[in-house]
C-alpha cells in the first residue's frame, strides 16, 4: 500500500458515498521525452472539492487539461460520469458542455462585454436564443456579484472581476463539475479574496470542483480531499486535516515546509 493509494484512504473520505463524477486510472501524459504524468489515479465524487497541490511542473494543470480533452492521454483512462472520455472531437465537445473550466489568465473574450462573455456558451454551443442566453448570463453575473458590470468590456475590469466573470461564464453552461486551473495565481493579493469567496460559495452549494491551487488556506478550509503532486505522480492524498496537519510523506512535508506552512 503506497501513500498515494486512493482506495486505502476511502474511510476518511466524507463524501465518498456520492456518485463518482471523475475517475482517473493510471493516467500517463508525455511531451516528447518529458513525462508530465506518470500514472495518476484519483477519484472525484459528487459535491466534493478536490484540491491538487504541489510544486510547479508536477503535473497538476496537465491533469486538468487532460480532463476536458484539451490534452490527449498517452496511457491510462479518464471516466466522466461513468463513461470513458471520448476520443473524437465531437464526443469531447459534448462532454465539455458538462464541464466548466476556469483558467489562470481568465481568458475572457476581449471583444465582448461581460454579459456577452457569459452568454457566449449557451448561445453558441447550446444554441439558446440570444435573449434567453442573456437572461441566464445576467443571473450568473448576479450570482458572482457583478450584475452592475454586465455592459463592461474585460479591459475595464480588474483581475478579480475578470476571473469572477470567467467563473460565471463556466457556470452558465450548468456543468456537473468545475475545473479550476490556478484561478488566483495571476491576481493581485487584494483581489484574491473576492474570487475565493465565490468559489467557497459554489462549494457550499454542492458543486463538484477540482481545483489546482497554491492557496493552501483555501484547500485547508474548503477542500474535502487533497492530492499532493510531485514529478507527475500523486505522492499523497487524503482529507485536508491529515495532509496539512500530519503529512505522511517526506515529499509532502518538504513541499509544505518550503511554502512556510505552519498549519
Amino acid at each position: 500500500m503506497t501513500a498515494g493509494d486512493a482506495a486505502a484512504d476511502a474511510g476518511d473520505r466524507r463524501k465518498a458515498g456520492g456518485a463518482t463524477i471523475l475517475r482517473y486510472r493510471d493516467v500517463v501524459k508525455r511531451y516528447g521525452t518529458f513525462t508530465a504524468l506518470a500514472g495518476v489515479s484519483l477519484d472525484v465524487h459528487a459535491g466534493e472539492v478536490v484540491c491538487l497541490i504541489g510544486p510547479s511542473g508536477s503535473g497538476k494543470s496537465t491533469l486538468l487539461r487532460c480532463t476536458n480533452g484539451l490534452e490527449t492521454l498517452d496511457g491510462g483512462d479518464i471516466e466522466f460520469e461513468g463513461t470513458r472520455l471520448a476520443r473524437d472531437e465531437r464526443g469531447l465537445r459534448t462532454m465539455r458542455q458538462r464541464m466548466g473550466m476556469v483558467f489562470q489568465n481568465f481568458e475572457l473574450f476581449p471583444h465582448q462585454t461581460a454579459l456577452q462573455n457569459v452568454a457566449e456558451g449557451p448561445r453558441t454551443v447550446l444554441r439558446m436564443p440570444t435573449a434567453q442566453a442573456e437572461r441566464r448570463a445576467a443571473a450568473m453575473l448576479a450570482k458572482v456579484g457583478l450584475a452592475d458590470k454586465a455592459a463592461n468590456h474585460p479591459a475595464a475590469l480588474s483581475g478579480g472581476q475578470q476571473q469572477r466573470v470567467a467563473i460565471a461564464r463556466a457556470l452558465a453552461m450548468e456543468p456537473d463539475v468545475m475545473l479550476f486551473d490556478e484561478p488566483t495565481s495571476a491576481l493581485d493579493p487584494e483581489t484574491i479574496g473576492e474570487v475565493l469567496s465565490v468559489m467557497k460559495a459554489l462549494a457550499d452549494e454542492g458543486m463538484t470542483m477540482v481545483v489546482v491551487t497554491h492557496e493552501m488556506s483555501f484547500a485547508r478550509r474548503v477542500g474535502d480531499w487533497v492530492a499532493v503532486f510531485d514529478a507527475g505522480r500523486i505522492v499523497e492524498q487524503g482529507p485536508p486535516v491529515r495532509i496539512f496537519d500530519a503529512p505522511q510523506t517526506v515529499r509532502t512535508r518538504d513541499f509544505l515546509g518550503h511554502l512556510g506552512w505552519a498549519g
Partner: peptide, 17 residues
C-alpha cells in the same frame, strides 16, 4: 493568444465556432 482558443474549446465550441 492560444488561451483564448482553449477557453472557447473548454466551453464546447467547434473549431469553426
Amino acid at each position: 493568444r492560444p488561451g483564448q482558443t482553449r477557453a472557447a474549446v473548454a466551453l464546447g465550441m467547434s473549431p469553426a465556432q
